[in-house]
């Protein structure tokens, strides 16, 4: 009998502890319909909601804090955005940091942000526009509208993604290996001028298609590298023939030395 009381008591105690902490229910995110005619001010409000909720931006990023932060503070991003990468407008910079977060990592921070239009966060292009409007409003004046075309996701905004992607594929089909190497952003991390005599053609192909197969790194380091490869978008955009052409180009470089 004492045992029964003890078991019930201990369980009840832990249940009560569970009731004392803040109770928050997280709803499953829904696709937020944004009609084409909302004003920029309304986009800021919508974007703020997305940043706090579905986009989970504010789980990592702070607004208006300093000290030893793990992720860049967003305060004043509206003005800073235009100055980060020379020649890149604020909107394009913000779009890049959402669609290709590891393309430019703020100095002093580690890469680690997920691609926002892919699972698990998976915002739609319209939602991302609203988030950009919100980010611009932090210390700046928002300039995007729902009609803004972003150059980063293939010059596509809103509904025209599919056609734009098709155009991109068309364009890429006619490029040579060197152009493709730059087109898919390989040059962002890889150099072609260094002596690279270790791998033969099959190995180079394998290390592109399956980055884990040939590597000198291990564990989390390798994971970081692979994530960077995956997020470069090369797997989604490039066809096999194109990758073939890139490898051809790389082998040419090797032959030159």
């Amino acid at each position: 009998m004492n045992i029964v009381v003890l078991v019930l008591g201990a369980t009840a105690f832990y249940t009560i502890v569970g009731q004392l902490v803040p109770q928050k229910e997280v709803p499953a995110p829904e696709v937020i319909e944004i009609s084409k005619d909302v004003t920029t001010e309304e986009m800021v409000e919508i974007g703020k909601g997305i940043a706090q909720g579905k986009g989970t931006c504010l789980t990592c990023h702070t607004i208006g804090q300093s000290g030893s932060l793990r992720f860049p503070d967003l305060d004043g991003i509206g003005t800073r955005a235009a100055t980060r990468i020379p020649g890149m407008s604020a909107v394009d910079y913000l779009a890049q940091s959402l669609y290709e977060p590891n393309a430019y990592v703020v100095e002093g921070f580690n890469p680690g942000m997920p691609v926002i239009n892919k699972p698990p966060i998976q915002l739609t292009d319209d939602e991302i526009l609203a988030v950009i409007a919100f980010l611009q409003s932090l210390g700046g004046t928002p300039s995007v509208t729902m009609e803004t075309k972003l150059s980063i996701n293939g010059g596509a905004g809103g509904d025209s993604t599919a056609t734009a992607t098709a155009a991109l594929v068309q364009e890429a089909a006619s490029l040579d290996g060197k152009a493709l190497f730059e087109r898919y952003g390989c040059a962002r991390c890889h150099a072609t001028t260094l002596p690279g005599k270790r791998l033969d053609r099959a190995e180079v192909l394998a290390s592109i298609l399956s980055p884990d197969s040939i590597t000198t790194l291990a564990g989390a380091e390798q994971a970081k590298k692979r994530q960077a490869m995956e997020q470069s978008g090369v797997y989604d955009k490039a066809t096999l023939q194109e990758i073939d052409r890139i490898v051809d180009y790389l082998m040419e470089q090797k032959a030159k030395e």
């Binding site: 369980t11 009840a12 832990y14 249940t15 502890v17 569970g18 009731q19 902490v21 803040p22 109770q23 928050k24 229910e25 997280v26 709803p27 499953a28 995110p29 892919k118 699972p119 698990p120």
Partner: peptide, 29 residues
């Protein structure tokens, strides 16, 4: 959270939300 297989298969059932900790502790109890 709202995934059966994280990032691959979405949970579209009515139970896709994440319950409160209070509810979870009751179920655990």
């Amino acid at each position: 959270q709202h995934w059966h297989v994280y990032g691959v298969i979405r949970d579209t059932s009515p139970d896709a939300f994440t319950p409160t900790l209070g509810f979870a502790t009751k179920v655990v109890s």
